[in-house]
């Protein structure tokens, strides 16, 4: 086997010995892996393997019974999800979780909430500081809208958009927070080839241009092999493989558990 050719990078996040149980069900069992600064890290595995649960642990929505999470060189204390968001972790959801009654623009603007600070007094007056702040952030959001090519649906309530566009808006909302670490839960599920290609391009560009480190869950192996730097493989809540796409693809345990069987 050829030696790993991953360039030398700093560790952004390290999950250590995480175990997560729901009553009798062990969703995640003693899993450890790291995410390097600037990489695209894929998490794969069959249905029910614990992938979404892992993301939920990382953004503080689930609290694991055991294990620790190290982020930017520090052990993370127990935090609420909204505090973790403020520390630079954003995500999208497997089942789209947009604010359906709001427009595309408002959804993405909401993603910048953690960066807006004018208090209620200034908001009530509006003219002056609050309005200036709004315009400032609107400019950033418009750049994201341009980048994702969704100018035409700016003022459309997202509930009326087709699935593929909703996924894109959700990515936009996550991007708006300018996260250090971006978690994407099946960003391409249910898309056709063209939409998938667009989404791949957006993800790679986000990684390049916005400098975000990305951890993504994806079932389409072709996509995973194309865009990820390293892959973690989960099965029944355990880690059964970890390495570059090539290494993982040729790993016998992984093949037996996952790649060998027809998926979906």
């Amino acid at each position: 086997m050829e030696p790993e050719t991953v360039p030398q990078r700093d560790v952004l996040m390290e999950v250590r010995n995480i175990t997560l149980r729901f009553g009798g069900v062990t969703a995640i069992e003693d899993i450890s892996f790291d995410i390097l600064e600037g990489e695209v890290r894929a998490i794969i595995g069959p249905n029910g393997a614990g992938k979404s649960s892992m993301l939920n642990v990382i953004n503080g929505f689930y609290h694991p019974q055991e294990g620790e999470i190290w982020f930017r060189g520090e052990k993370r204390k127990a935090m609420k999800p909204h505090e973790i968001a403020r520390h630079g972790i954003a995500r999208t959801f497997q089942n789209i979780a947009l604010f359906r009654g709001m427009t595309t623009l408002d959804n993405i603007m909401t993603g910048r909430l953690t960066k807006m600070h004018r208090n209620m007094f200034w908001q009530a007056i509006w003219r002056g500081p609050a309005e200036r702040e709004e315009v400032e952030h609107r400019e950033v959001v418009e750049r994201i809208i341009d980048f994702l090519e969704i100018q035409h649906i700016r003022k459309t309530p997202v509930g009326r958009l087709p699935y593929g566009l909703q996924k894109r808006v959700e990515l936009g909302r996550a991007l708006a927070a300018e996260p250090k670490l971006l978690l994407l839960d099946e960003p391409m599920a249910g898309m056709n080839i063209e939409e998938k290609e667009d989404m791949c391009r957006f993800i790679l560009d986000v990684n390049d241009e916005f400098g975000a480190t990305i951890a993504l869950i994806e079932h389409d192996m072709g996509v995973v092999m194309d865009i990820s730097d390293r892959v973690v493989v989960l099965d029944y809540g355990r880690k059964i493989g970890d390495g570059t796409p090539d290494v993982v693809r040729n790993d016998q345990t992984v093949i037996d558990a996952y790649l060998g069987v027809a998926h979906e």
Binding site: H82, M102, D106, T110, L113, M116, E134, A177
Partner: peptide
């Protein structure tokens, strides 16, 4: 900002919390 945070809680409170 405040109005959008209200509406985000109305539309999807879990997602709202996760984006901060």
């Amino acid at each position: 900002r405040i109005g959008r945070s209200w509406m985000s809680i109305r539309d999807m409170d879990i997602a709202a919390e996760i984006i901060g």
